[in-house]
């Protein structure tokens, strides 16, 4: 196998798409394992499934959920 390629794609207003990632480590050390070939990492902070994007960046306002 050739060396693995990891790429990060910027999606303005949305997540970062990462291809080839194994894990995402949060500030508190929690490790989230990437289980699909392309993962979307949340950048807006509104996701209920951090570190992954759950499309909450789309909701104009996220009511009754303060995570």
């Amino acid at each position: 196998m050739s060396a693995r390629r990891v790429t990060v794609q910027d999606c303005p207003g949305g997540p970062l798409l990462i291809r080839g990632a194994d894990e995402v480590v949060a500030a508190d050390g929690t490790v989230a394992e990437a289980t699909r070939p392309v993962v979307a990492v949340c950048r807006c902070g509104r996701s209920a499934r951090l570190p992954w994007c759950d499309a909450s960046h789309r909701a104009k306002r996220r009511s009754n959920r303060d995570d």
């Binding site: 794609q9 999606c11 949305g14 798409l17 699909r36 392309v38 499934r49 994007c53």
Partner: peptide, 15 residues
């Protein structure tokens, strides 16, 4: 589908 389609949304619209 919550997670997968958050990825697919970007792939489908942009890529």
């Amino acid at each position: 589908h919550v997670e997968a389609d958050a990825v697919h949304e970007q792939l489908a619209i942009r890529n």
